[in-house]
Design a protein around this nucleic acid. Structure first.
Lengths: 341, 341
DNA sequence: TGCCGCTATGTTAGCGCTATCATCCCGTGG
DNA sequence: CCACGGGATGATAGCGCTAACATAGCGGCA
């Protein structure tokens, strides 16, 4: 009977030691060619690269992470993947992080602070080097977890007026106010607002609209609609129905996002309501389709690519241990005045 | 001068040993309460749970993964996050995997086999327990990496007729043929096809359409349009222009996806082209908005939630080391005949 | 010539966790 | 009364990698 080692737990995979043996060098030299090639002579490096290719070696992330206390990952939590805003933000983040050697761990919170907390707890086990969150409304426990993790955090989409945390985004309230101003400037007075899925950003947009409407003496609660349901084109159809029942003389409707506005637009076509003659329609977010609807939709574009880029850039600064020039970056917004108003 | 330990690399984080010390037990008992609570007596378990809560302990994923040779992660590669099809598939996958303790590592291949290969290489370092891919057209190196990883693989969206690999999806060619059949049945004869971003599934749909059109003696190359650009609503507008220039007498257009069809619909409204009177419009994928456009869009719904569920279920079978009842699952499709045809 | 300092490479000792084997304790049956 | 079995708990030794320190080898300068 052959003497079997009692504690054999080898995984059977190609390891760094295998590569080192093949190249006739020590393990650390292999590690160095991968991590900091400049420290290794060209000759050795070539030999090692050849061995890596021959054996098909793939470095073990867990071992590296454990030994170096750097995971090379960044957690990114967004409220939705069905929304082009967040998808494009993710794309922009990736464009910054990937070339610098970081991988994204993506989590979908579904607009729920509780789910955000659960997701964060799960991803925190990966010891991320940095964390990107959407919005500023975290639960107390989430905040505690973040503090305990030791990883730098950047908040996206909203901006933190207090400067207590790092944030990159747009002023949602100002954007809501801007659209209200635009509609008033075009001569509309009986302007309705449709709010759904009342996340903090929606609330802020509505607050901006309300303020401007009150200041203009045009605010009427009957035109201030809301639904707790998640946003969708179909819900826009429903909400238009509700608006027409509740305040049929409205001459404009500001939808808290473009999906909703599309639904409103489609239902107006179906009912033969002239847009913008009889009813003006405005949205928020400038989805790709909004430039092509009939009529083309007036909406507000927030710089989602810029937000992703800047947030990722800011995070890399923090992860490098540097103190950023500014902790709060307001990237503004753009009102796209098109044919629907 | 205090004697400093020469090799101090402690991360300062709360570790399992800290929890064990606090609870007055050995480290392994803490590990067991987390991994297999049944093996630990209720009294000890309670004491340990309390210590975990007091210290705010979060298990280190890397260390666990290294020691157990199980990472608890599943890599999921999709061609796009801007497409509701894949987002809903991801949601369905998560619904299956999360409760069973797996985390998703999401990668966006942007419809490029080369990017798929690069992403896979990066994620493979995490030693995933399983892999979910979209489509069947992997590069040779991707296939080699998959084989070398030892992790079970399930392909989604398309179905592999040879049965060589596990796959869950719909017959794309049959779906394309079905839509062609539907349009013919409604009396249309001069039916165009608009293809963009020629991934294999688009090609297959087109192949199905071509076959049926040829069999009916209606196939005309002038109505067979294609563009290499990525799909978008705006591209639909452009492609309709091209169609009207190239084959103005077409009486129906089958778009390879709904985004495109929406663009076509909007442009028809703008030009005053009656749909479906003068031109019928059909799409593919049944995006949420398609049920609400004016007119409501005829399209094909593939069971993306079902595909995600079944693929994840199949993968869990394979990861558990079981042999699944069937390696290939065709979930079919549904033709949604609405007002636009 | 001998000493210095620098670069290229190697040795050692963990990182935090779990697999494996060892031990302990208690009730049971001969 | 003691060997025995089985459930609960513990000790030990890695998993694959890198930080920290060690060393070899070489050129330059006094």
């Amino acid at each position: 009977m052959p003497p079997r080692k009692p504690h054999s737990r080898a995984s059977g995979r190609v390891t760094l030691a295998d590569v080192a043996a093949r190249a006739g060098v020590s393990a650390i030299s292999v590690s160095r060619t991968l991590q900091s090639p400049a420290q290794v002579s060209a000759a050795l490096r070539a030999r090692i690269q050849a061995a890596i290719a021959e054996l098909g070696y793939v470095p073990d992330h867990a071992a590296r992470s454990l030994a170096s206390a750097r995971s090379g990952t960044v957690v990114v939590l967004v409220p939705s993947l069905g929304n082009a805003v967040f998808v494009e933000t993710l794309t922009a983040i990736q464009a910054v992080l990937q070339p610098r050697g970081w991988q994204m761990l993506i989590g979908n919170t579904r607009y729920s602070p509780a789910e955000e907390e659960a997701l964060l707890l799960a991803w925190l086990g990966h010891r991320p080097d940095g964390i990107l969150l959407s919005g500023l409304d975290q639960t107390g426990r989430t905040r505690a977890l973040l503090a305990g993790s030791g990883a730098p955090v950047v908040h996206m989409m909203e901006i933190d007026a207090t400067g207590a945390c790092c944030s990159v985004g747009s002023g949602q309230e100002a954007a809501g106010a801007a659209m209200a101003g635009h509609l008033l400037a075009r001569g509309y007075r009986r302007i309705a607002f449709i709010a759904v899925q009342l996340d903090p950003r929606t609330r802020q947009r509505r607050e901006g609209w309300r303020q401007v409407m009150r200041d203009a003496g045009c605010y009427e609660p009957a035109r201030d609609l809301e639904s707790p349901q998640p946003s969708s084109v179909g819900l826009g159809v429903e909400m238009l129905e509700q608006l027409l029942a509740q305040a049929p003389d409205s001459d404009a409707v500001f939808c808290c996002n473009d999906d909703l506005a599309h639904g409103v637009l489609f239902e107006c076509q179906r009912r033969g309501i002239d847009v913008p003659g009889r009813l003006a329609v405005a949205g928020f977010n400038d989805l790709p389709a909004s430039a092509w609807t009939h009529p083309r939709l007036t909406t507000i574009a927030i710089p989602r690519t810029g937000i992703g880029q800047e947030a990722a850039r800011l995070l890399t600064e923090l992860m490098a241990g540097r103190t950023p020039a500014q902790r709060t970056i307001d990237l503004g917004f753009e009102l796209k005045a098109r044919d629907s108003t």
